[in-house]
Amino acid sequence: MKVFLNPGHHPGVDPGAVNNEYGVQEASIVRDIGVLVARYLTYAGVEVETLQSDNLVGESPMYPEVCASANESGADLFVSIHCNSAGSAMANGTETLVFGLGGKAERAARAIQNQLVTSIDTTDRGIKERPDLIVLRHTEMPAVLVEIAFISNDSDVELLIHEQDTIARAIARGVTDYFCGEE
């Protein structure tokens, strides 16, 4: 079992969503959570490769290319980790995105979504199709993009800042739940 982890965006290059009131950037939050997810998956016996880069398919050639690296890795699952954001500070909750419903990617998304919603007690926004997202469209293995919570919502951003270990454990458990269901 091997997972390719992709904490979204790129600290110092592409901050992703930002909450200026709390002084946090998506790229930094997901980097820290990604380190923890990798640690917990490794403890569980899952091989992990991690890459955080704003170069998804060659648009920023001075950085490693995410999709090509994932496809060359031999990974059984691709997990991209993100914080959601919206114009309304009322938007909240967790959602997990897949290229299309049905199949292994949706099963992985449901396992991760269930663990996250239960562990951090967020609104369950469900599993959504997003065939337009590069990391879901250009990866060859089952791929999911986890929108942990809204960086633009006060309650959610508190979770993103203070519950990173709980979030990481939930994502790792979701991945191992998925792999256990595959056997």
Rank of each mutant, 00 (worst) to 15 (best):
G8E: 02
D165M: 01
T176G: 07
M62R: 12
T96A: 09
L56G: 05
I29N: 00
L56K: 10
Q25E: 13
G12N: 11
N92P: 00
C67G: 07
R39H: 11
A91P: 07
A108W: 13
T42H: 08
G126R: 14
A108V: 15
L5F: 04
P7V: 08
T122Q: 12
L56I: 14
A38Y: 00
V13Y: 08
A109Q: 03
D165T: 15
G58F: 09
Y40C: 03
S152Q: 10
V79A: 04
F78V: 10
D156H: 08
D76V: 10
P61T: 04
T42G: 10
S69I: 10
L116V: 14
K128W: 08
R107Q: 15
V37S: 05
N20I: 14
V46C: 08
D177L: 07
E59T: 00
T176K: 06
N153I: 13
Q115W: 06
G23Q: 00
P11I: 05
H82D: 00
I120Y: 09
E140S: 12
I167F: 02
L77D: 02
A38D: 01
A149L: 01
A91R: 13
P7S: 04
V57A: 12
I134N: 11
I33T: 05
I151A: 03
I134T: 15
Y22G: 09
P61H: 08
S60G: 02
E59K: 01
Y63T: 03
G8V: 08
E59F: 03
N71C: 06
L160M: 08
H162A: 08
E59M: 04
A44N: 07
K2R: 03
Q115A: 15
H138R: 15
D32K: 04
N92I: 05
Q25I: 00
S152G: 13
S85A: 15
D76I: 01
E140G: 10
A108I: 14
Y22D: 06
G100H: 15
V117W: 10
T122D: 03
H138G: 03
N20R: 15
P142G: 05
L77H: 07
L41T: 13
Q113W: 07
D154S: 15
L159A: 02
Y22R: 15
E72P: 00
D156N: 10
V46D: 03
E26L: 00
A170S: 12
V37E: 05
V46R: 06
V35M: 05
D177W: 05
L97F: 14
A89C: 03
D156Q: 08
A170F: 11
